[in-house]
Write a protein that binds this DNA or RNA. Structure first.
Length: 431
DNA sequence: TCTGGGGTCCTAGGACCC
DNA sequence: TCTGGGGTCCTAGGACCC
């Protein structure tokens, strides 16, 4: 494979992003161990009782506090820990602003998450100088203009740049010069490699492999028998820095999902239907806003004790209707309990829609009209209802109306008030 | 007094097709 | 006549990432 030379790939990663934003919004939190809390059961800004740590400041990390950790455990590790609720709108706004800064140096930006991105600056050096200089400029501008600490890794490939940015943290920069990759990687723990989590680390450690250097010295055949074909092959390549460097500027999602932790609840039809209706609403609304629909619906059910199962179904007809998605999800969830008769309680429900196709509601309605001589009245009504709800929410706000439980239960069709909305609403609404 | 919410990718078995 | 080889799709579970 032909490969550009030179360390022109940057991985830019905001440090402890959520926590840094909180310290920016409230400077009295600067220098203190803080945790951004996630509430259990959907309250969204819990203070740690029952919730988990979404992000920890470096001061909190020094005590061993990590994201994903239950709040009570974080507090026991760090009694002086301050829990703050998340300002999620601010995270999105500031994350976007950081990406805008990146975009001023190159159009070759691949955003990986809210707070990190890969950049290829090969075409920018004649304007802005060497990659290492660009990296320093990124850090300076994000700090000066947005008040946030940023770490940057510079290398010949994406993966290596990412490792370098991890090594650079907090608030640093690491450049891996071409030709020095292997000596840079060799002493690092394998856990720094992307894709090596707890399980893989344990498996490797059991074979005496702790560092990337030791990994590189392990034969591909051994790695593959240890970790499976794909992971083994990937890690073997990584350890010797044989890795892609292509930047994907327009990544599109392959699935859309939502989930809700419920504490511990009796798994009654009522609980399942109400929760799945809420989740289906969120997922289907996002699908329609993106002009997409999905052929595969997956439901995840978690039982007490963290054991979870999934059930999925694939249909030739893509779904984007809230009520159809609710129905499919409900049947799948029930199937999960039928297959696990000993389980009577549920702690989490999730819906994910995949196998996505471009397919807006208007198109779906036309298809129904064209393809079905006596079009299924329920389907048409559901499309109309979704349209009405989407339109009303865009005017009056998301909380203005929803799919009430009574609607979910109304098997005969759509309540009058929604029909009226549909008739007078969006001119594209089907009739 | 034990676990959020959003995703991606891989594996393995089975069905089905040529 | 009793079982080759390759490919695709679907389902369920699992590891991993931020």
């Amino acid at each position: 494979m032909p490969r550009a030379t030179g360390a022109t790939i940057l991985h830019a990663d905001l440090d402890a992003f959520y926590a840094s934003v909180e310290q920016l919004l409230d400077p009295t939190l600067l220098g203190k161990p803080i945790a951004v809390g996630g509430g259990a059961g959907g309250s969204g800004n819990g203070s740690g009782n029952g919730g988990v740590v979404l992000a920890a400041s470096y001061e909190a990390k020094a005590f061993g506090v990590r994201s994903g950790m239950p709040g009570w455990r974080a507090r026991s590790l760090c009694p002086s820990l301050t829990f703050v609720g998340g300002h999620f709108r601010e995270y999105q706004r500031l994350g976007d602003a950081v990406m805008d800064v990146f975009g001023q140096f190159t159009p070759e930006v691949e955003r990986v998450s809210i707070d990190e991105a890969f950049l290829d600056v090969a075409g920018s050096v004649h304007l802005f100088g060497e990659p290492a200089h660009i990296a320093a400029e990124l850090r300076r501008r994000v700090r000066d203009e947005l008040g946030l600490p940023l770490s940057v890794g510079v290398a010949t490939t994406k993966h290596l740049a990412k490792v370098a940015s991890q090594v650079a943290k907090p608030d640093g920069i690491v450049v891996v010069a071409p030709g020095t990759e292997r000596e840079f990687l060799a002493p690092l723990p394998v856990g720094l490699l992307w894709g090596v989590g707890r399980k893989t680390q344990e498996r490797l450690a059991a074979s005496g492999v702790h560092t990337v250097g030791e990994l590189a010295a392990t034969s591909p055949a051994v790695l593959q028998s240890l970790l499976g074909e794909a992971v083994g092959e990937k890690l073997g390549a990584l350890a010797v820095n044989d890795d892609p460097r292509h930047i994907e500027t327009d990544r599109h999602a392959r699935s859309v999902g939502a989930q809700s932790a419920l504490g511990q609840r009796a798994a009654t039809d009522d609980v399942l239907r109400t929760t799945l209706g809420f989740l289906a609403d969120r997922v289907a609304t996002r699908l329609r806003a993106a002009g997409q629909a999905g052929r595969t619906v997956t439901v995840r059910v978690r039982f007490p004790g963290m054991r979870a199962v999934t059930r999925s179904s694939t249909s030739p007809d893509p779904v984007a209707s809230t009520l159809t998605l609710t129905d499919v999800a409900f049947d799948l969830a029930r199937a999960a309990f039928v297959d696990n008769p000993a389980e009577r309680e549920v702690t989490l429900l999730a819906i994910s829609v995949s196998n996505l196709v471009d397919h807006d509601a208007h198109q779906l309605a036309l298809d129904l009209d064209a393809e079905e001589q006596h079009a299924d009245a329920t389907s048409v009504n559901r499309v109309a209802l979704d349209h009405a709800v989407d339109a009303a929410r865009s005017r009056f706000g998301r909380a203005s109306l929803g799919y009430a439980t009574t609607v979910l239960r109304a098997e005969g069709g759509v309540p009058d008030e929604f029909r009226e909305l549909a008739e007078r609403g969006d001119p594209r609404s089907p009739d």
